[in-house]
Amino acid sequence: MSSPFSINGGAAVAMVGKDCVAIACDLRLGLQSLTVSNNYPKIFPYGDVYLGLTGLATDISTVSDLLRYKVNMYRLREERAISPQTLANLVSSSLYERRFGPYFVSPVIAGLNHKDGKPFICGFDSIGCIDFAKDFIVSGTASDQLFGMCEGLWEPDLGPDELFETISQALLSAVDRDALSGWGAHVYIIEKDKVTKRLLKGRQD
């Protein structure tokens, strides 16, 4: 109960579709069972790549700020946007740098490869081990529920609209069975030349 990963609560999920990817998070910030905020987004954009962070709220801020700095420096140095694969390796090495005093976060990445437009998603443990997946990645206090929902709803080659429905229903249903996450959601659908961000109201109890 007092694991740093479940003090503040929260959930995030990423999914692959046909020529598109989706990433979503809930909006709750809590202290154990008490909800402090119902508008605490956990997805951060780095150019056209998106990073979801669940876990200890302080480390969500610290890690997202640190990566913003690193990605901005990368963009200035290299005069190009960072690719999802490169960001994944940057996140991994940044987390492993703190191997013996880790940031208590479970990151998720979603984006389209710059060169071939191929969907890319991956997840990490708190010390940077990358989990490459062809279908979906879940993280947060509702990860068990998300695994079940994604396993049941996801199928290959979903178009952007179907993918939105799938990821939204998976997240909303998963967080309803988790006391530590919920209170609405943010969903990003990433296509080749369009990113759609939708705000889901969700159950407010």
């Binding site: 003090i7 503040n8 910030l29 202290l31 008490l34 402090v36 905020s37 605490y40 200890l56 709220a57 302080t58 801020s61 610290t62």
Partner: peptide
Amino acid sequence: DYLAALAKLPYAAHGYAQY
């Protein structure tokens, strides 16, 4: 809070006052 979790809120409290 003391863990440096930061949230922008319309209203807020700390400690038992929250409850």
